[in-house]
């Protein structure tokens, strides 16, 4: 596999201005997707996964959100510095996104066709010259691809007339209609029941394989990530805390948070009730000093309260943001305990 980076996020900071102050939601996020790679992103609800993805496409609502620092390089070009035209061409054709909640992602007052047709119209320069009729013909294709019955009639239906599963399929169809080089799938199917969710994920997997697109898969179902992704990032409270090839991460999780996350997965093979991680995601208004995980960390040290650990290599392709693996910090500690 080639290792040409397709998307590289460097030190991304995002803030939300709210009534009580400023929420420092993303606190220096680093992230990379290589060409053809499928990357997983896991973490608790509210840890900033969706915010990171929306920041990539510059679709965070501004205000209240504000990107206060960092770079988002797509094929070497900084998306955050793009002008309207270049941005528009990067969105859709370059990067597209499947949203978490298909009901919220579809405009309730437009028919499916009215939403799908402009997407296809702007998917390529040639399409811009098409007539309404030809456009409508093209609009049927993505709906067929996601195995929706009677696509012709669906074009004239409003989202409210579809079931949750159908809406999710429509969203997938729309996101893939532009043939994106990079597809962001934000917890697809989370809002659906388990059997439908499974169907939707299988469908997505198949479509992605066919197109050889790169994928970012956000999920809190670790099993799905394990099955689909080449590499995984773990995120906590606006920071990347661990990154490794999938197999390595599952075999040998380093960060205490990642370990907690894996222990929280219930297993069919027994072992009783799964362990959770005590506590919850901290407030972004007054985030903990130092490592944001330290108040919940079973292995917190003194330094964790004051300094933020760097996101650095523990092994060649395994990165972690934790002082336990920082030789400058961990070694003297170990010596102290053994002595």
């Amino acid at each position: 596999m080639s290792v040409t980076p397709l998307l590289e996020i460097k030190n991304l900071h995002v803030e939300f201005k709210v009534y009580g102050g400023v929420l420092k939601v993303l606190d220096g996020v680093d992230f990379r997707v290589n060409v053809g790679e499928k990357v997983g992103l896991v973490g608790e609800t509210g840890c900033g996964k969706t915010t990171t993805m929306k920041a990539i496409l510059r679709i965070l609502p501004v205000p209240p959100a504000r990107i206060t620092g960092g770079e988002v390089l797509f094929k070497g070009r900084d998306i955050l510095k793009m002008k309207e035209r270049e941005l528009r061409e990067t969105r859709g054709r370059g990067i597209s996104m499947i949203f978490q909640d298909p009901t919220a992602a579809l405009n309730p007052v437009f028919t499916i066709g009215a939403q799908l047709e402009p997407v296809i119209r702007h998917a390529s320069p040639e399409n811009r010259r098409l007539s309404k009729k030809e456009l409508r013909k093209l609009a049927v294709i993505p709906l067929k691809e996601v195995a929706l019955a009677d696509p012709e009639r669906l074009l004239d239906a409003y989202p409210i007339q579809l079931s949750g599963g159908m809406r999710q399929r429509v969203c997938i169809g729309m996101a893939l209609a532009t043939n994106p080089e990079l597809l962001i799938a934000d917890e697809p199917g989370t809002s659906l029941d388990v059997t439908i969710q499974d169907q939707v994920l299988r469908l997505l997997q198949r479509l992605v394989e066919q197109r050889h697109s790169s994928v970012i898969l956000i999920s809190h179902t670790l099993g799905i990530v394990r099955q689909m992704c080449d590499r995984v990032y773990v995120m906590y409270a606006g920071n990347m805390v661990e990154e490794a090839p999938t197999r390595k991460l599952f075999a040998n999780p380093l960060h205490p948070y990642t370990r907690g996350l894996m222990a929280a997965v219930p297993r069919l093979s027994g072992g009783g009730v799964a362990m959770g991680i005590p506590g919850r995601i901290p407030s972004y208004l007054h985030p903990p000093s130092g490592c944001r995980f330290h108040p919940r960390c079973p292995q917190a040290m003194e330094i964790c309260k004051h300094e933020k650990p760097a996101f650095q290599q523990a092994e060649d392709d395994h990165r972690v943001a934790c002082f336990l693996y920082d030789p400058a910090v961990a070694e003297p500690q170990k010596e102290a305990t053994t002595a």
Partner: peptide, 30 residues
Amino acid sequence: LTKDYIAAIRAFGVPERTVMGRFLLKPSLI
């Protein structure tokens, strides 16, 4: 403007003019 359907239609590369003048205007006029 903070709704996901606006974020979504933008993410698909639909120009800002169409987003504002069509996809935002209609639901906002009710």
